[in-house]
Design a protein around this nucleic acid. Structure first.
Lengths: 191, 191, 191, 191
DNA sequence: AATGAATGAGCCTTCATTCAT
DNA sequence: AATGAATGAAGGCTCATTCAT
């Protein structure tokens, strides 16, 4: 009997290597060989397990989104009040891991790819819809217009992430503060 | 009158061709040959005038930002009130031309490239700073915290653009409405 | 009774799978993996039993020639007259099974390979010599120049097969008719 | 002004190199790099001028058929009698150049490819039809059944070529003699 | 007996870039 | 000013083959 059950291990290694390589290179322009080398295998094996470069990339993207979703779920679970839920959603978007160089490039490129790649586009919309749904749910007890407010807060989060990721003056902390401030505005905190 | 050199003409043609080609292809993955062909010249000439592919692209990016700035300037000039100025800035961000496929892809990719390319990064920050400055200036008479409000509105605009560009449920019109609504929130609608 | 080893079973399965796969693909460009999969085993096992791709193919070719020889033998056995023997040889060449897609491709490729591969070349010459011998034997009582006539009839058969296999206007039936007509010419049918 | 008019030169060089390489290798399994090297240029240039491997091969096949046609035309032009025309067609099929190793392999492979490649198939049928037409035309004054006789003679020629090309006992001379003998049979040479 | 795992070698193809004219 | 010609470098992908279990 041969060595068994390598597939999930290899696939996982490749996905991680892809993200790491993208982060290290700062571009999506990484070759399958680079990825495979980092994952400690031949490029042929990478193709064997994924079928092609696109699919490797797609899996990496899904991995990133899945990771983000995890953080959201965890954060939501800890929240006790409606406002706490909204804050949790904001927090999850500006985690340290969200600003891992690899994650940033990957996320940015997701958007760039979305214009062309239908799968990527679907993936991103899914993320946006999920965020929207979560926000709306959190805001419902607090706002008279939860849907519109959720739309705004969602877009604001993305925009702030963009700025923070760009590395200009906006830090992750500042971004989070701005989002929280907007939340206050929306639900009318009279302090 | 001196006979106008070909250089500016060729350069301009190449810049336009680059944007058009990117738009048509839906990707940044366009070759110099494609661009040159669309511009009606040989790829060798394109290299002659720009030195390399990167510089062609960079020129195209600058062209897009310059176009956007034009619209902003024009819109601001027509504005008569502080609020009008803020609205003008919002309007300019959701013009039809902003949603030209080529512009979208280019813009998206700008962000993706910004992580790597220092020039691109500088370009984008410049845009953000300019937008921020304009917004702050417009909000100063209306808000007690013009700086923070401008930061928020600026990020919101970018986030909304992202969503509208993605082609999901959010239309350009809806995006604009959301931004205006946020503006109302910030400056307290009763004025 | 000793338990039959797997080897002959596996080898046979691989040979059949090879022919089937070639027929299905319409080319000799089939991979060992494809063949092995069709034969219900791993490609590693295919190598284990045959040593390499070339040997698998060679075995398949021999299988085809053997099948053809079988038909010839059977047909000859049923023939009662010299002319019947000649006709039997013609019949055997234009059987339905001779025009099985896999057989056609295999046969065609045999010729193409014969230029390079010494084994294949020997195989094909063997076939031609056998056909020649059979024809000569059949024609001896009927013709004054059995050797020359056999040479002609043999070549004609191959040429007709080529045309019928090509799928043009020449059908298997027409091919057979032409060959029979040539036979009549040779042995002078006065009817 | 750049060096001009290289295209036809390069294309021709590639076609010749393809045939030579196939002949030298004894197989169709030659790489574009090999061909290009033999033609004295980079493989990139070969792709530039032909677009892809298939098209290089196809051009080479056409070249071979065209060469054959040339010989036919020349031979026919020299013929003075109906029988002379038929003989010319036979001669042309067994020229020394027809037995150039490269030509043999190419021709053989044409048949093998014809099962898959539609273009190749068409090419071969064209050849057969042309030969058939020529033969029928030549036999008309000599035979009561020119069509059937042409079909037979055409197939015979192909079959004989196959044998001669195979390098067994049948030489080109013997093949030609056999064909001429068949011609005598058909048109009834009473000697 | 059998197979999943793994790879090295190689092929086709693309493309930015250079150069001679 | 302009371009056809030309290439080196690289990338994605395939596949026969080997090996440990």
């Amino acid at each position: 009997m041969p060595k068994l059950g390598m597939e999930p291990i290899r696939r996982d290694a490749l996905v991680r290597a892809t993200i790491a390589e993208i982060g290290a290179a700062g571009t999506l322009d990484v070759t399958v060989s680079q990825i495979a080398r980092r994952a400690g295998m031949s490029s042929a094996l990478a193709h064997h397990y994924f079928g092609g470069k696109d699919q490797i990339f797609f899996a990496a993207m899904r991995h990133i989104l899945r990771g983000f979703r995890q953080e959201v779920v965890t954060a939501l679970r800890a929240a006790r009040t409606p406002r706490g839920r909204a804050e949790a959603l904001i927090d999850a978007s500006f985690t340290a891991s969200s600003f891992d160089p690899a994650t940033i490039v990957a996320w940015m490129t997701l958007y760039a790819q979305a214009a062309t790649n239908r799968e990527t586009n679907r993936l991103l919309r899914l993320y946006q819809m999920r965020l929207h749904g979560n926000l709306r749910h959190a805001l419902r007890p607090l706002s008279a217009t939860p849907d519109a407010d959720a739309a705004m807060l969602g877009a604001l989060i993305d925009g702030l992430y963009l700025r923070a990721a760009l590395g200009g003056g906006t830090t992750a902390e500042a971004a989070k503060a701005t989002a929280l401030r907007a939340l206050d505005h929306l639900i009318g905190v009279r302090s």
